[in-house]
Design a protein around this nucleic acid. Structure first.
Lengths: 203, 203
DNA sequence: CCACAAATATGACAGTTGTCATATTCCAGT
DNA sequence: ACTGGAATATGACAACTGTCATATTTGTGG
């Protein structure tokens, strides 16, 4: 495939960003980690590191949202939540609690490129907008599933936000504690909250 | 006071870390931002940047936990939750959604110092342990307050984890969206969850 | 007033970063 | 076979990083 090198760079950047953060991930690290040619960076990403980060964020976003939407459609809200949590647990355990969420990394760890100009400010916001769009995407999937099972619009939106935010926070905390205990606890409470909210609707 | 320079450096480091992340905060940035003498860094922090980060994390931890514990004692669980959320909302709005949580920054954005030796691995874990300790501290305060109002031990622990994790995640999301909407939504749902859990106990 | 340690100033160090310019290789289309 | 553009290789650039060594200042106890 023609785009293999490019895709490997994007996936490798997302992986490294999720482990170390944005600024601790250098382009030389990416080519080392993915065994890709360094000379191709400026060819595949003419706008430099900022473009690579941007593509890594949308890549990571889809990598989560596509199976999430599928699970929601096939297994309902509770099943979808379980799949969502399970995928994060898998990622934590498979990497020895090294990898977290690259989208959260962009939201927390601002990339500081060439300073001075007002390009700086606007380019920063471009990356933040991208991360915000991914979070909004995930929330939207959750919200739609809750709506479909009969929950009110505003309640669905609030619960969707709670689910995404709490799991993002929990994944970061699990990385710090090198344990999935927090994830287990949050999963149980979220299941309880969603179940009772849906039961109240049905009853 | 003798420790004014030192304290200004610690507070400034915590502030910059909460805005840009750990690796995007250089020691030269800290002295620029706090108008402190650069030559004093190695004097006040002989172990270098890692020590400054460590002190900034514990400083930020206490800055949250002390008023949180006070609010929990004076106003109960719901009041304490409201104070907790309000302090984060204040921080977001006062800084134009620039500042987030420096402890989360340490958990997400790994500081990469001098490589090679196994010091690397253990020193990394020292910072992660510190962040984990702060999160555990906040959770403990929440858990104790829930216990005191009659909730079962395991439920208290789970709910405390949910509260801290969801708010940490929400603050990061709000920084990305430059809006407190997510915080409003999460606050409302958390209040509902805690209220019904406590009501079930009392009734 | 003096001495002595704490605090600050200043400059240098090797290493890394993102970016770019220039060469070289690869490979499909004719 | 060959040509033209895509892809890769290689090295260099200035800027920045954390750290350290070496002055110089400051403030306080004698």
């Amino acid at each position: 495939m023609t785009t293999t090198t490019r895709d490997k760079m994007i996936a490798g950047a997302a992986d490294l960003m999720s482990r170390r953060g944005v600024n601790a991930t250098s382009m030389r690290d990416v080519v080392r980690h993915t065994a890709t040619p360094r000379g191709s960076i400026s060819h595949h990403f003419p706008d430099g590191k900022r473009q690579l980060i941007a593509e890594a964020v949308t890549f990571a976003g889809k990598q989560v949202s596509i199976p999430l939407e599928k699970a929601m459609n096939e297994r309902g809200v509770i099943g979808g939540l379980r799949a969502f949590v399970a995928s994060w647990r898998r990622q934590l355990e498979a990497t020895g609690f090294e990898a977290g969420c690259p989208v959260l990394a962009v939201a927390v760890d601002r990339y500081v490129g060439e300073a001075s100009d007002r390009d700086d400010e606007t380019a920063q916001q471009h990356l933040l907008d991208l991360a915000d769009g991914v979070f909004a995407d995930w929330r939207q999937i959750m919200r739609t599933a809750l709506l479909r099972e009969g929950l009110a619009a505003e309640r669905s939106e609030r619960l969707a936000t709670l689910v995404v935010a709490s799991i993002e926070g929990t994944v970061a905390m699990c990385r710090a504690s090198r344990s999935t205990d927090a994830l287990d606890q949050v999963q149980e409470e979220l299941e309880t909250v969603l179940s009772t909210a849906l039961a109240r609707t049905a009853g």
